[in-house]
Simulated scan of single mutants.
Amino acid sequence: MADRPRAPQRIRRLLRAIARPMKSDRGRGGPVVHPYRGYGSTREAFLMGRVFRQTRLGRVIPPYGALRDVADVARRIVRRGLPDVEVHVTLGGNDITVTTDHDGYFNAKLALHEPLPLDISWHRADLHVVTHDGAEPIHSYTDVYIPPEDTDLLVISDIDDTVMYTGVADKLRMLYRLFVKQAHQRTAFPGVSAFYQALYVGQSEEARRPILYVSRGPWSIYEMLEEFFQMNDIPVGPILFLREWGITWRRPWPRRAEEHKYALITRMLDLFDDLPCVLIGDSGQHDPEVYTRIVKEPPGGVMAIYIRRVDSHVDRERAIDRLRQEIAHTDCELILAADSTAMAVHAHDRGFISEKGLQAVRRDSREETS
């Protein structure tokens, strides 16, 4: 086992993680547009992002080292969104102009009148922003995922306590797990990587299915979650958060988001209305209630709900069992699973994953828990 990094090294890794999103402007400051990966169908596409202003680094700050990281962390804390700024989005031969909200966020729903190439799934969207202060126009781009025509299944998964241990909504705890703890102290649940890889490639091992992730966390941890997915070899997909927390000195608590997960998932199901779907969540929050509500409403299409059991409270298990009975008459099964292997066994029995995928989940679960 490698030696545990010393305290100064761990602090530097943590600082670098928080400061990393600020490096792209090379200290020049000014307006910045940060788009997130988008998703869509052959009919329409969605993408989101933020336009904000960053402070400029002084000349006394070196371009590298701990002092620069500290300065970039400070810049990240004080950056502010730019409201009422027009963002022009182009995707293939399609375009739309949207306006940022009071926090600087924009949400583009782009009708695809001009078809995109069918032989690729990831498409480049270009963004052009002109701010009100006469600064140089800002250009950026992001990727938009459009499933191939032969896609046979859509996977929508929660992140918090489903893919990774508790900590997504707690930014400091998440950063500690990702960048401070030793490598063998996993942030992902055992077998998660193999299970999601198996769902991604399907029974044919060549499916390349869309996997969309949702979280109750804020947009400000987007880069850290990308790092988490890469570190744990989990299939990449658009990471769709529920909300911007909007924490200020006057309002120190996150904005409420009870209905946001429901609205977001139903919107995705409407977008991919010709695809059967699997929903994955955990027993600790409201995933079972939200998911069964979705199953009971038209048009249906949810084939399975996998709920990771994250506690052993008898009352909670009874409540989930009642939800299972409520949808027993549908084509959907609700599985309360103790681990990734239990989910994978059912997914294999239903034909969602291959035998090879099931064995990979079993092997990885054993290795990660040993």
Rank of each mutant, 00 (worst) to 15 (best):
R6Y: 06
R16A: 15
I18T: 03
S24T: 11
R26G: 00
S41A: 10
R43S: 13
A45V: 06
A45E: 07
G49W: 00
R53G: 03
Q54M: 03
G65T: 05
R68Q: 02
V78D: 08
V85P: 10
V87L: 07
T99F: 00
Y105M: 13
K109V: 03
H128W: 07
T142L: 10
V144M: 02
E149M: 14
T151S: 12
D152E: 14
L153P: 05
V163L: 05
Y165P: 00
G167D: 12
G167S: 05
L175T: 11
L175A: 09
L175I: 14
K181I: 12
Q182C: 13
H184P: 05
F189L: 08
P190T: 13
G191V: 07
A194W: 03
F195T: 02
Q197I: 09
Y200P: 15
R208F: 14
P210K: 09
W219Q: 06
I221C: 05
I221R: 00
F229I: 10
D233A: 04
P238K: 03
R243V: 07
E244F: 04
W245T: 01
R255P: 15
R255E: 15
K261D: 01
L269K: 09
D273Q: 13
L279N: 09
P288Q: 03
V290P: 03
T292S: 08
V295G: 14
P298R: 05
I305R: 11
R308D: 11
R309D: 05
H313G: 13
L323G: 09
E333N: 15
L334W: 05
I335L: 02
A338F: 15
A347T: 07
H348K: 07
S354T: 04
K356T: 15
K356R: 10
L358S: 03
L358W: 06
R362Y: 04
S370P: 15
